[in-house]
Each structure stands twice: as C-alpha cells, then as structure tokens.
Design a binder for these strands. Structure first.
Ligand code: MN
Ligand code: MN
Ligand code: ZN
Ligand code: ZN
Lengths: 155, 155
DNA sequence: TTTCATTTTGAAATTGATTCTCAATCTCGA
DNA sequence: TCGAGATTGAGAATCAATTTCAAAATGAAA
C-alpha cells in the first residue's frame, strides 16, 4: 500500500461531505471525480479549470476537460467550492469549506489575488440594500490594481 | 428639414466630444456611427449590445452587429460610455459623461439595475487597499438579489 | 455473483458573446 | 476630383463553457 502525502485536514472533510452529497442524490462515485477533487483540495488559491486540468492530467492523462468542468460544478453546488468570476475570462474556483465570506484584491499585472474581510463594509452594503428595499443574496467586491511587488518592480 | 426630437443636453455634449475624439486621432465620421451613438444617448440605463442593436436596426436594418461593438468600444475609449460586466454574459454600457462613480444593485429576478453611491464604502475600500500596499485602478461592487417589487410579487 | 437501470465519461459538436478578417465602400484633405 | 487610409457588413474565428452521444462504469437488487 502506497504512502499518501499529508493533506490539509479540510480536504478529508470536504471529501466526506462530497460523498454524502453524492450519495444523497443518486449520483455515483467515480475514479475521475475522486482524482479531480483530491487534486483540487491539495491546491490552494484561486484555480482556473485550465490550471486544474493541467494538474489532473499530470496524474491521469485520460481525464477530459468536460469532467473537470462537471466536477467543479458539483463541488460548487455542494458548497465545497466557490466559483469566482474575476475580470478577463475564466472562472476560478477556491475551496469553500469552513471559510468566511471574503472579498478580493486582484493585481492586474501579475495576476496575484489577495483576500480581505471587512465587516464595516459589509454592514454598509447591508444598509444600502435596506435603503432600496433590496434583499441581497450575494455580492461582489473586487479591487483591481497593482500589488505592492508590481509597483516596486515598475520602479 | 426634419424636426428632431428633443434630446437630453448631455447627448449633444457627448456627440461633440466624440467628434473631437474622432478628429484628433485620424478616425472618420460615418453615418453608421452617428446613428448608433445617437441611439445610445437617446436611451437611458444599462444597455447590452444586443438591445442597442435592436434599436439601431429598427432605424437602419443594414447596420451590422460588428459596427455596434466597434462603436461602443470607441465611446468607451473616449470616456463617454462605461462598460459594465455584470453576472450572466453580455457587457452592458451606460453613458459616462458628467457622471460620478457609482455602484450597482442588480435584481436577479427582473434584471432591473439600481445605482448607489456611498462615500464611506469607498473610503473603507481605499483603506483596505492601503493596508495591502495596493494601488487600486478600479473596483467593482455589485449587490445581487431581489428588488422590492420582485419580493412583493413573490408573495 | 450477475443483472441492468442509471449515471458517468471523453470526444466532439455546439453555444453565445465578442473579435477578427477581408473585400467592397466610404471619407476627407490635398 | 483623387486616393490613401478608415470603415463597413458578413461570415469566420475565438474562447470558455455546455451539451450531445455512444460506450463504459457504478451499485442496488436479485
Ligand atoms: Mn478567495
Ligand atoms: Mn450605472
Ligand atoms: Zn502584482
Ligand atoms: Zn426585480
């Protein structure tokens, strides 16, 4: 039996949650899904399907892109991943289990993504919504610009 | 000479600004562009290219979609329109001349879009950026949910 | 175990918004 | 009026994502 690399505790929990999600709706467990989910939770950050596909096909080159798309949709529906639609193209996914809501700073030069939480901003948003009689289901706050490193690099 | 419908004062200003923008970079004035620009500034709100194309082809059915895309790009580059990328596909454009920065509430049921300005939120965003040593170029704050009317309609 | 209805898969086709290409047509300064 | 250069509309191309479909895999019941 092969020894398995240590994994983040949340990864195991996520796999368990996924198993019951799958069982509870008559879906079936598959080798491909397991591998994709395992690969996803082994990574950190905000992954595009393309990037994830690369890691996945490095492990099993027979897995198709459609299956990765489909699996990430399942993870999202199960609340184990969140889909983020930043500017400029592909959807990115991040692990969602045991994570607080947070927003993002995106460097338009190097593409790095930073996270922040700001309770005060959330409150003010809620107040704005209230003033409009609006019931907010979700929101998006994204700050685009140059990260510290890129500012320094550009002198 | 045909009488022209009364138009918002900003529309005339925008056309003037566009004329000098076009002249200043060796572009040429065209009938199609005039008609598209005129149609755009006659409308209010956040228009998709498809919606704009409909209004445009109602006036001249020979105008192609590519020309509408190209014209909206010019208006955007000239700072006379802003492109908004809300959830769900197409870019929407709104008039930008003499408008403050503002953010949006988007009803996911009826699609209506409401605007707000909140100086306090802007300040807090600036502070967040500062804490990360980030130089923000632009940001996006969008609140999605049900507008008042849609809440009431759904009982 | 075997059966077999159901789900899943990978490849390829399709979608939908947008951009590009290209030959024909227009614009505008000389 | 001329002609270099810009613009046009149609259709092709692009790109991420979804759908289709026939073959393969899964798992509950027998
Ligand atoms: Mn994040
Ligand atoms: Mn607006
Ligand atoms: Zn950077
Ligand atoms: Zn509504």
């Amino acid at each position: 039996m092969k020894r398995v690399a240590a994994r983040k505790p949340s990864a195991a929990a996520a796999r368990e949650r996924l198993a019951s999600w799958i069982a509870s709706r008559g879906l079936k467990a598959t080798r491909q899904r397991d591998l994709i989910v395992d690969t996803f939770f082994t990574q950190t950050g905000h992954l595009s399907v393309d990037e994830l596909l690369d890691k996945v096909t490095a492990r099993d080159s027979s897995i198709g892109a459609a299956t990765v798309y489909r699996t990430m949709k399942i993870l999202t529906d199960a609340g184990l991943a969140s889909a983020r639609h930043f500017e400029g193209g592909q959807t990115r996914y991040e692990a969602a289990l045991d994570r607080h809501h947070h927003d993002h700073l995106i460097c338009t030069s190097c593409g790095r993504i930073f996270e922040f939480e700001n309770e005060r901003i959330e409150e003010l948003q809620a107040r704005v919504a209230e003033q409009h009689g609006f019931r907010v289901t979700h929101h998006k706050l994204e700050l685009y610009g140059l990260c510290k490193a890129c500012q320094e690099r550009q002198q």
